[in-house]
């Protein structure tokens, strides 16, 4: 009984991330048609107010587009880009679940990408959020 419950819960969590992944994959494939390629795509299950931080190396001269997709349980996802010292460089704080940030680094360096699940739908306790770093 317990194992079935655990299995059901884990399946639900994966299903959330799968929906977010599918949304992101669509954007990635659209991007390929316009010259964008993918560094990394990853997903996570986040509770309201939770975030994930990803360390990235960005090359000077390359253009970067950072995208995220929340599943239907997530009503707002925000993306924030910081430099290595913690200075905020860019933010997509729009009230939606598919934020996008564009950035062109003036020097090759390390940056932080913060992905926040800032709002969830009704009684949802968590939602899937997929994030990709693309470049051209």
């Amino acid at each position: 009984m317990l194992s079935s419950l655990v299995l059901a819960l884990s399946t639900a969590a994966l299903a959330d991330e799968k929906a977010a992944d599918d949304c992101l994959k669509t954007k990635i494939w659209e991007g390929y048609n316009t010259g964008w390629a993918v560094r990394t795509a990853t997903s996570a299950t986040l509770a309201k107010g939770e975030h994930r931080i990803y360390l990235v190396t960005l090359y000077a001269g390359n253009e970067y587009k950072i995208m995220a997709c929340g599943d239907t349980a997530v009503t707002n996802v925000d993306l924030v880009l910081y430099d290595a010292l913690g200075n905020e460089l860019a933010r997509d704080g729009h009230q939606d679940r598919e934020p996008v940030l564009s950035y062109k680094a003036s020097a090759t360096d390390t940056f932080y990408i913060a992905v926040h699940a800032t709002a969830l739908l009704g009684a949802a306790t968590s939602g899937g959020v997929a994030t990709a770093v693309t470049y051209k």
């Binding site: 560094r39 990394t40 990853t42 975030h51 994930r52 931080i53 990803y54 360390l55 990235v56 190396t57 090359y59 910081y82 913690g86 390390t110 932080y112 990408i113 913060a114 770093v133």
Partner: peptide, 12 residues
């Protein structure tokens, strides 16, 4: 940021 950072996207 440093405490929570994951390296999944670090390497070009």
């Amino acid at each position: 940021l440093a405490a929570a950072a994951e390296n999944i996207a670090l390497v070009p």
